[in-house]
Design a protein around this nucleic acid. Structure first.
Lengths: 114, 114
DNA sequence: TTTTTATACATCGAACTTCTATGTATATTT
DNA sequence: AAATATACATAGAAGTTCGATGTATAAAAA
């Protein structure tokens, strides 16, 4: 089992990013490493993929950014989740449960709530 | 809980269609009704959405089509799954399990195999 | 009988997505 | 001094969903 399909990546990227930002503020480059780590390399975002997603989420008001200077002296754009984003994450979780119930039924196995 | 997001639809459309065709041959219009029924209206494909997906799957060799005339006298394009399609469905199921384990972990609940 | 609805296929263009490539810049390591 | 890692950003290619539109025929309703 290798890398996941583009479609599955697309469906999971928003809830995964919002979940990460629920735990801590973070910035693009770190989020990429983080996702790679927690998925055991099964999801690897390129920078050209993740940054536009972050911009989209910010534009929709689900996350907010602010430039900060790290101890290293490097500038980083930190993102935090907004209240809107928390609501959206809740909806996304419900949607994920729904689709799981649907495909569980189609594949005739027990549905699994997440 | 209403209709599912475009992304989730996109991620699930291929496995759902292949699963339907694993049970019986079917044709576009019927597949649309079928999906609407088994998902309780949560997934509703428009014709302009489903037909291109079927064409794509056929082009990739996952399904095969043949025109037939129904008892009603109506012409229908029936699709059946190919061996390639069966292999693909297996992979898609594995991928679905993988992503479920990943997001289960992220959301800190027990992982659930489908 | 004429009109409407349901069935059945197809394509187009708008909007959006992912991905690879490219560009810029700075800190750290070799 | 050079190479690598960190950090952000955008552009263009390819692919997707979706509503709109078009064609055609069978069944149902007016």
């Amino acid at each position: 089992m290798e890398k996941l399909s583009k479609e599955l990546i697309g469906a999971s990227s928003t809830p995964i990013i919002l979940s990460i930002l629920t735990k801590n503020e973070s910035y693009g480059y770190e989020i990429i490493q983080n996702i790679k780590e927690i998925t055991g390399g099964k999801i690897e975002f390129g920078e050209g993929t993740l940054y536009p997603v972050l911009h989209k989420l910010e534009k929709k008001g689900l996350i907010q950014s602010s430039w900060k200077v790290a101890e290293s002296g490097r500038k980083r754009k930190y993102y935090k989740i907004s209240n809107e984003g928390k609501k959206e994450l809740k909806i996304e979780k419900e949607n994920w449960n729904t689709i799981n119930q649907i495909i569980s039924k189609i594949w005739k196995v027990e549905p699994n709530l997440i």
